[in-house]
């Protein structure tokens, strides 16, 4: 029945070859990971008694989520939400507008080397630090209130948007760009005709996405004094008004869902 059999008897066991071939390396990685895990868990400093004390608080906390208190007194919640929305919109617009020159400068195929390096370092700087740290400094400089939050979020937007814009430009089609250049167009015409059509649809989608991020971030810059719903949320927590906090969180979730839906819709419409 079987033809050209090379072996008279075949192996009866088979083990999957290990992912890391060298045995010593494999075992030292496993061992190292285990040791790290133990050390890290030890550093957690889990205080059972403290956790136990926290449980009734957690119960009260989650209990007061139902029902959430939407009918807040003096309308502070809605004021905070609206402030967050305005903050998110204006910082997205400002951030995107500032990102365009920086993004163009950070694209290797457009900018001379020194401009490229400068723009890249601006991007790297604003990407490394979370918006909250930017917000702390903005609050120090501009005082409490939404202006500080606006500055922090705009800076964060630059790091995000300019980087993606630059990458998109670098990946755009060389031949289209050359074809337009060959017509004798000047630099601005060239950008307008060759680069803009290629990167525009994605950029519109990304700005809506960033608006979504900025709204979410605006909920936290308030914690350090940057205005918006975060300030309201922080107050609610420190006053133990958990039902108000729950209402705020639910409103945030709802708005984020709407924004997410809107952005996917807009992206489809643009493309």
């Amino acid at each position: 029945m079987i033809k050209n059999t090379a072996l008279s008897s075949y192996p009866v066991v088979w083990d999957k070859p290990p992912f890391i071939k060298r045995a010593w390396l494999r075992w030292s990685i496993i061992l190292g990971a285990l040791i790290y895990l133990i050390l890290a868990l030890a550093s957690m400093d889990i205080n059972i008694q403290r956790v136990m004390e926290g449980l009734p608080r957690a119960q009260r906390f989650f209990g007061s989520f139902f029902p959430p208190n939407f009918a807040d007194n003096q309308g502070v919640v809605w004021e905070g939400i609206l402030e967050s929305i305005w903050m998110a919109i204006i910082s997205t617009v400002a951030g995107v507008l500032l990102s365009i020159p920086i993004g163009l400068g950070a694209a290797r195929n457009l900018a001379p080397f020194w401009v490229y390096m400068m723009c890249r370092s601006i991007i790297a700087g604003s990407r490394t630090f979370p918006e909250i740290i930017l917000a702390i400094f903005a609050v120090k400089l501009f005082g409490f209130g939404p202006f500080a939050g606006f500055i922090a979020l705009s800076l964060g937007t630059i790091g995000f948007f300019a980087k993606l814009l630059a990458e998109d430009i670098e990946n755009s089609s060389e031949s289209q760009a050359e074809a337009v250049k060959a017509t004798g167009a000047n630099w601005f015409q060239w950008i307008n005709y060759a680069i803009q059509p290629q990167v525009m649809p994605r950029m519109i989608g990304l700005s809506v996405y960033r608006l979504d991020i900025n709204f979410r971030e605006s909920a936290v810059v308030g914690i350090v004094g940057g205005g918006g719903i975060g300030a309201t949320l922080n107050t609610a927590f420190s006053r133990y008004e958990f039902d108000v906090a729950a209402a705020i969180l639910l409103v945030i979730i709802a708005i984020v869902m709407v924004l997410e839906y809107a952005s996917s819709f807009l992206r489809k419409w643009v493309q």
């Binding site: 079987i2 090379a6 192996p11």
Partner: peptide, 26 residues
């Protein structure tokens, strides 16, 4: 856990040999 019965493993090797891919098992 990839612990197939030994007859299955043996049959797998035999089939791979039959189609000329015995060296490619891993």
């Amino acid at each position: 856990f990839r612990k197939f019965p030994s007859e299955d493993v043996k049959e797998a090797y035999r089939l791979l040999d039959r189609v000329g891919l015995l060296d490619m098992a891993d």
